[in-house]
Amino acid sequence: MNDSVQLKIYFTGVGGQGTLLASRVLGEAAMTAGYAVLVSETHGMAQRGGVVTSTVIIGALASPIISPGEADIVVSFEALEAFRALSRCHSQTVVITNTAAIIPYSVAIGQAHYPAVERLMELIAPQVGQLLTLGAETLAQQAGSSLAVNMVLLGALAQTGRLPFPGKIIAGVIATRTPPKHVDTNLRAFQLGQEAIARQVPPRKLKTA
């Protein structure tokens, strides 16, 4: 275990997408790998179709939340929420996002405009250290369930090489901590997420825990 590790990971998505399970699995994996870890979650009213965020703080930090401008990694379950999360980013932040759009009701009824996803991505890219995009919904469906978007994104996160422990530790937590009847689908989704990023990012040597 490396005492100098400090990693602030910000998850964002829409109520019902499974962001809380993703942050909890990552937190369990960090703990299994021997790191100090803190997770903070959104519960209550926001879960009714609103924005749901959570954070995973790995390493020698005491604060459970991430200030504006201070996330090292953003994992977004939705394109517009990735853009909104720019306020959490700095110039070196790695942003991983699902490119699928979930239309807010204000947009659906014409009171606001949802910008083109391509434009959102073009605007994010120059502001941050690295932008990685994937069609997580499609990959989740390939894995067997559109609900496995969270596992696809965890796979993508593991493959960036930014975590201080290998992806197989996350896979191990998925195998033991998600409902037995979904484990196969979840592991497939995790692997598809890894593969999608492996095609975009040159392999980076993993630090070992």
């Binding site: 009714r48 179709g49 609103g50 517009l80 009701y105």
Partner: peptide
């Protein structure tokens, strides 16, 4: 973005 980011209140 050059304009407000659409809000996403709970429904």
């Amino acid at each position: 973005l050059g304009c407000p980011v659409p809000e996403r209140p709970p429904t």
